[in-house]
Amino acid sequence: MDILTARHERSLMTVTLDGRLDALEAAPLRAILTDAIIDGQIDIIIDLSNVEFVDSAGLAALVKAMKDARRAGGDVRLVSPKAADAVRVFELTKFDKVFTMGLDVETLLNRR
């Protein structure tokens, strides 16, 4: 999985992922997000549109970042995956109702 990050003005950061967000990839993602929030990047948009599969460990990395960011006054918002196999874990755990999710980065930026 590639993890591309871009830091924008003030507290905003975008993260673009692809491939599988599973237990193998969750640890490096969690480290990146934790460091970013500690550095003050508390408004994070994670683009999951090209992610093919998400498991509970991948979900846990996103949930931890969301909780950390909200505690600091920010949020983690998600661009919805296109693949049904990646969306499924959000629906089964009802986290599709907990995260702010949008069709693309522009949509989420305009909701700020």
């Binding site: 498991d55 509970s56 979900l59 846990a60 949930v63 931890k64 969301m66 909780k67 874990v89 089964l92 755990t93 986290f95 907990v98």
Partner: peptide, 11 residues
């Protein structure tokens, strides 16, 4: 409150 882990068997 959403917790971080424990969703595997729930799934």
């Amino acid at each position: 409150a959403p917790q971080v882990r424990g969703y595997g068997l729930m799934i």
